[in-house]
Write a protein that binds this DNA or RNA. Structure first.
Length: 122
DNA sequence: CAAGTGACGTAGA
DNA sequence: GTCTACGCCACTT
């Protein structure tokens, strides 16, 4: 258990139906700008520990591609199906227009420990 | 402690 | 558009 894990799970649960977020996006909002891989790891290791309402399928990579590998219960095609069910168009190649469906979090999104970090290459 | 692993991201070819 | 190489960071060996 870790604060990072809790934040990731909470943020993913905030993604509304019909929208998607990138792993890196979730990591960013959780306060770990470089933790994209860890988000995937968290979701993988949390499989089965979260309820059926937990929208893990709304997380895709930043190229708009479904690239899950570790799930014991779902295939990439299953994830695509869940997304299509919410109105998101996913090609047979497991690709979607992430810019068109990207989730824009409310500005109220914060966890008391600080504001959302925005990407800056300074 | 060092090396390996992985639902990723980015840059370069 | 594709693929490969490297960086990233929490975790496991």
């Amino acid at each position: 258990m870790s604060a990072f894990r809790d934040r990731v799970l909470q943020i993913v649960s905030l993604i509304p139906p019909g929208r998607v977020a990138a792993y890196g996006q979730v990591a960013l909002y959780a306060g770990f700008p470089r933790g994209a891989r860890n988000v995937g790891w968290i979701l993988h290791s949390s499989e089965g520990l979260v309820g059926p309402d937990f929208p893990w399928w709304r997380v895709v990579n930043n190229r708009g591609r479904i690239t899950i590998k570790g799930s014991l219960f779902f295939s990439p095609h299953d994830q695509a199906d869940l997304l299509r069910r919410e109105g998101i168009l996913v090609s047979e190649d497991l690709k979607l227009d992430i810019e068109a469906f990207r989730w824009r979090p409310p500005s109220t999104l914060s966890f008391g420990s600080g504001p959302i970090r925005t990407p800056s290459k300074n």
